[in-house]
């Protein structure tokens, strides 16, 4: 029996593990893929307090080692279900684990366009990470689709590499930061396409062109070698939906206290309803969720 079972080894989950272990609780972290979460895609983190430059990989590795050195058990198995019966149970593809409390820190995954051939073209022209794959498109023509910060930052990053960058957005103004947009507007190899969606991918072996449809119904074909999809993320909560209350977008409904509707089950990080999804708010959630879990154990679980 574990005191705290944490689902997800990203910044939120690993921070929760650190707080749990420092309170001498028996902590298990379950992770489907590899530790670190989406921060490993970031080349250079510049907004984490007291750390002006660190790569996402180094940040994740240091955090992972810190949690491990403190005695957190970290097992790489995918969680498929949680149960709240006499005891709390976490079921993976291979095993079952019992815990006094559970912290859900599963984060989110890239939202897709849901176009035909999209999955087949990943790595053959379709990408969800400009900093990861931009280097393959030196002097080529690319498009970015989306209207938030990620889309603007991706487009800005790509203007320095690619021959031409099209930025396609379904509305007539961007949600992303104005400072990034202003930098982008100064580039001479960007073309903004407003009020439009990508509606078709044309490819044989790899992506060759995209069809873009305007709100007014008109369509045009744009020849591109790469399409960078930055249309947001989807929280990975579907396996908990039977037990845990989610909002319409699939986020676990919880406030700053990280409590879910089930006593003893907490949420931390990007899969929670919140305004600001940043590294620092993920680690903050981890600390709060672990502290809440520790309090719950001390108040509700007297027997050893």
């Amino acid at each position: 029996m574990y005191d705290i079972i944490i689902v997800g080894a990203g910044p939120a989950g690993l921070t929760a593990a650190i707080y749990g272990r420092r309170a001498s609780k028996k902590v298990l972290v379950l992770e489907a893929k590899s530790y670190g979460g989406q921060i490993i895609n970031t080349l250079d983190i510049e907004n984490y307090p007291a750390e002006s430059h660190i790569s996402g990989f180094d940040f994740a590795t240091q955090l992972y080692n810190q949690a491990k050195d403190l005695g957190a058990e970290i097992i790489f198995e995918k969680v498929v279900e949680i149960k709240n019966e006499k005891e709390k149970e976490v079921i993976t593809t291979k095993n079952k684990y019992l815990g006094k409390t559970i912290i859900l820190a599963t984060g989110s995954e890239n939202r897709k366009l849901n176009l035909e051939k999209e999955n087949d073209l990943v790595g053959k022209g379709i990408s969800y990470c400009a900093t990861c794959d931009g280097a393959f498109y030196k002097n080529k023509n690319v498009a970015v689709v989306g209207g938030g910060n990620t889309a603007l930052e991706d487009a800005l990053y790509l203007t320095d590499l690619a021959n031409k960058v099209y930025l396609i957005h379904r509305r007539d103004e961007f949600r992303g930061e104005e400072s990034t947009l202003n930098l982008l507007k100064m580039k001479d190899n960007i073309e903004f396409i407003y009020n439009s969606n990508v509606t078709k991918l044309n490819a044989s072996e790899k992506l060759e062109s995209i069809e873009v449809t305007n709100k007014d119904g008109s369509t045009k074909k744009i020849d591109v070698d790469g399409l960078f999809v930055a249309v947001g993320r989807i929280p990975e909560n579907e396996n908990f939906a039977k037990l845990i209350n989610l909002d319409n977008s699939g986020y676990i409904i919880a406030g700053e206290d990280c409590n879910t509707n089930v006593p003893g089950i907490f949420v931390a990080g990007d899969n929670r309803t919140k305004e600001v999804r940043q590294l620092v708010t993920a680690t903050s959630d981890g600390a709060i969720a672990a502290t809440s879990a520790i309090k719950y154990i001390n108040n509700n679980c007297n027997e050893k």
């Binding site: 590899s34 530790y35 670190g36 490993i40 895609n41 970031t42 080349l43 790569s55 996402g56 990989f57 994740a60 990861c132 280097a135």
Partner: peptide, 11 residues
């Protein structure tokens, strides 16, 4: 893979 690629290093 590449040296600058985080997921490659994780893998």
């Amino acid at each position: 893979n590449a040296s600058w690629c985080g997921p490659c290093k994780m893998l």
